[in-house]
């Protein structure tokens, strides 16, 4: 049953121009970053050769690409998640899902997984671009995998938070703005804390994502993202259930 909902979400997503615009936009930006970083690497390659432990192609080209992708996705995931519940409510199509023999958990998980699959596709495209470097050089696979894993976990939690915000309203635009505000708050919450030992750092997406960017995957960072995603999925289910009770 979850598979039916995933298929439906992906089909309606790709039936609208939104998915294609996001994919194209992301690809253009990343290709541009890819080329400029490549160029930069080639110009300073001679100097790097004299260093004892020089940064390689992966550090120079792949890592910035994932960094930019995380920021662009932070801004585009709200556009994907705003549709999930708010638009269904607005178009009155939510009734079809609620009247069908499907549980609220299945609806929420189906919608989340569909978004996650789309984001994994984005991750795959970036990885393919990185792998194209193999034609003329070597890659640090550990660093590449850490970055990919980090991006997937990060965007997965974006999807869960965005889905929850979408459950709160019937206006897709409000859902998008609300989700973006939530992401920015989570991303930058550590700026508010000047003390490096402040507990606010524990909540910052950026802090937890940094580990993956540097290739140092810590269990705490993994747990943070998984927990964040799970909490907001549960909240979404509860919120939709409450809707049926209160309406």
């Amino acid at each position: 049953m979850i598979r039916t909902i995933i298929t439906k979400e992906l089909r309606t997503l790709f039936a609208s121009p939104l998915a294609w615009v996001i994919l194209a936009f992301l690809q253009v930006i990343l290709a541009w970053i890819f080329l400029t970083r490549m160029n930069f690497f080639l110009t300073i390659q001679g100097q790097l050769a004299h260093m004892p432990n020089p940064p390689g192609l992966t550090e120079f080209v792949v890592v910035p690409m994932f960094g930019i992708a995380s920021i662009v996705l932070m801004m585009s995931v709200p556009l994907l998640t705003m549709r999930l519940i708010a638009e269904e409510r607005r178009n009155k199509t939510m009734t079809m899902l609620l009247s069908a023999p499907v549980s609220m958990t299945q609806i929420v998980l189906g919608k989340f997984l569909a978004t996650a699959i789309f984001l994994a596709l984005v991750g795959a495209l970036i990885t393919l671009m990185a792998l194209s470097l193999l034609m003329g050089g070597k890659l640090d696979y550990g660093l590449l995998v850490a970055n990919l894993l980090g991006l997937l976990l990060l965007t997965g939690s974006f999807a869960a938070v965005g889905l929850f915000v979408s459950c709160l309203t019937t206006h897709p635009v409000v859902a998008a703005i609300g989700a973006l505000a939530a992401f920015l708050a989570l991303w930058l919450v550590n700026i508010a804390a000047s003390d490096p030992g402040s507990p606010l750092h524990l909540f910052s997406l950026l802090k937890h994502f940094e580990g993956f960017v540097n290739g140092a995957v810590a269990v705490t960072d993994l747990i943070y993202f998984v927990l964040l995603t799970a909490v907001f999925l549960v909240l979404s289910i509860r919120r939709l259930d409450a809707d049926r009770l209160r309406a």
């Binding site: 049953m1 039916t4 909902i5 439906k8 089909r11 309606t12 039936a15 609208s16 178009n91 009155k92 199509t93 939510m94 009734t95 079809m96 899902l97 009247s99 069908a100 023999p101 499907v102």
Partner: peptide
């Protein structure tokens, strides 16, 4: 159930939509 406003996905074709409805209803 047909609600007051039919729950239609305007971006789908009639057959696609009915197949979806069938799958949702097992």
């Amino acid at each position: 159930y047909l609600p007051e406003v039919p729950p239609l996905y305007r971006e789908l074709k009639v057959d696609e939509y009915l197949r979806l409805a069938g799958r949702l209803h097992k």
